[in-house]
Write a protein that binds this DNA or RNA. Structure first.
Length: 418
DNA sequence: TGACGTCAAGATCCG
DNA sequence: CGGATCTTGACGTCA
């Protein structure tokens, strides 16, 4: 079993995808962006390896305007070596990657131009995985598309277009149930009929269920039958509804207790789970730690070092509780640890706890900071206390100093994330 | 015609 | 002038 996250790594510098507006997309600009993005991807893969993350969705933004006429750059030739090196790292670490064109790639559209663009987009996505030198287990995920007042016809168009796709694209393509139009039953019908592996998405299934109200495990088992040996083991998407937000919105973080219930329901190892969640790698590491048998407590201590100031800023009580829990080195529970952590994250901090935490963090650099910097910091702090400036401003200044004096411990911390 | 989703780029505001 | 904050963009479907 692999647990992964999608597209974006949080809290690590030089791991972002850069883009530009269409009107600025000159060849020079695009080449520069592509070079940087491949460098970022390489850094993301390094992070995944260091953190034992074996499943990852590469962002479609890797190549800006990757399937558009405006991008005439033969990036797969220019950056051939760099891409192969990244691919080697993926293979050597037994990582599985994927790509997922968004809701605007519609293969079954009744508009021919839209279909042509969708085909170009699928070719682009496939080309990334091909250029990395990865096998057919590394997939491109697609939704079926629109309904156009006639689902039968729309499904027929999907099948026809699928059959006409280049062979290397077809080999990678997998389909997923969506939140509005095609439910898991309909997607499975297509997948079984045309030999396309199916990804079950739990939240989409909740919002847009099949008329036959069958259990999640029924649909997961049925989806499994669509995964052939050469496709690798079955893959599913897992996410949680963000409370008090629009139906279908992904939660800020994975609630570990809900996840563990789902995981126990699955009751199997031959399945890969892609998490779709706002805090990306953070929840991914959490879920990995909670499903690892005989986890070393060092892993939780590492996590604590990254989260501690975020918790302290919200709740001193929770901070002490978690510290207490980690004192028991022989008998500890990762789920208990993260449950407390989540409680802490959901607590609203007050002015006092913000100030207290700022001072805690300040202690790491006070011996390095110049008199001027010290002056500045305490001026910011005073202004914050008087509500003349926001917490963000103070933290950003502190972040700058932490970067300047290369405080590794704090640079790895989640304290400075927004 | 706007909402939907995503999030960095770009524009503008502010001290 | 630099940093913070607001707006736009790029995509297709559907109400």
């Amino acid at each position: 079993m692999k647990i992964g996250y999608a597209c974006k790594l949080i809290g690590v510098p030089n791991s972002d995808m850069k883009s530009c507006l269409l009107k600025n997309a000159s060849s020079e600009k695009l080449t520069e962006l592509i070079k940087y993005n491949i460098y970022s991807l390489s850094n993301i893969i390094d992070y995944n390896i260091e953190n034992n993350i074996k499943l990852f969705r590469i962002s479609s933004d890797l190549i800006p305007f990757g399937s558009s006429e405006v991008n005439k750059i033969k990036w797969w030739e220019i950056f051939r070596e760099e891409l192969l090196l990244v691919g080697e790292k993926i293979k050597d670490s037994n990582m599985r990657v994927s790509l997922h064109p968004g809701q605007y790639t519609v293969l079954n559209s009744n508009n021919k131009e839209v279909v042509q663009r969708a085909i170009a987009d699928l070719i682009y996505h496939t080309r990334i995985l091909d250029s990395l030198g990865l096998n057919q287990e590394h997939k491109v995920i697609l939704h079926i598309g629109g309904a156009y007042d006639n689902k039968t016809l729309a499904v027929k168009r999907f099948a026809e277009e699928f059959k006409l796709l280049p062979k290397n694209v077809k080999k990678r393509l997998v389909i997923e149930n969506d939140d509005k139009i095609y439910n898991i039953e309909e997607v499975l019908d297509i997948g079984i009929k045309h030999n396309i592996p199916v990804i079950f998405d739990n939240l989409h299934n909740l919002i847009n269920p099949s008329e036959q109200k069958l259990s999640e495990s029924y649909w997961i088992d049925k989806s499994k039958t669509t995964w052939k040996k050469e496709d690798g083991i079955q893959k599913i998407h897992y996410s949680q509804q963000a409370e008090a937000k629009k139906v279908g919105s992904h939660s800020d973080f994975i609630s570990i207790n809900k996840f563990m219930n789902f995981y126990k329901m699955l009751d199997k190892d031959d399945i890969d789970i892609m998490l779709e969640v706002k805090d990306k790698n953070l929840s991914c590491v959490k879920c990995i730690n909670c499903t690892t048998t005989s986890l070393n407590i060092n892993e939780l201590e590492k996590e604590w070092s990254r989260y501690k100031y975020t918790i302290l800023e919200r709740s001193h009580t929770k901070y002490l509780e978690i510290r207490e829990l980690l004192k028991n080195k022989s008998d500890f529970s990762a789920v208990d640890f993260y449950t407390l952590l989540e409680d802490g994250l959901e607590t609203e901090g007050d002015s006092g706890s913000y100030v207290n935490t700022l001072l805690h963090v300040w202690r790491h650099i006070k011996n390095f900071a110049s008199d001027k910097e010290k002056d500045n910091f305490f001026k910011y702090l005073e202004n914050f206390k008087l509500q003349r400036t926001g917490i963000k401003t103070v933290k950003n200044y502190l972040k700058k100093l932490v970067g300047k004096y290369e405080q590794e411990y704090l640079l790895n911390s989640y304290y400075f994330l927004n």
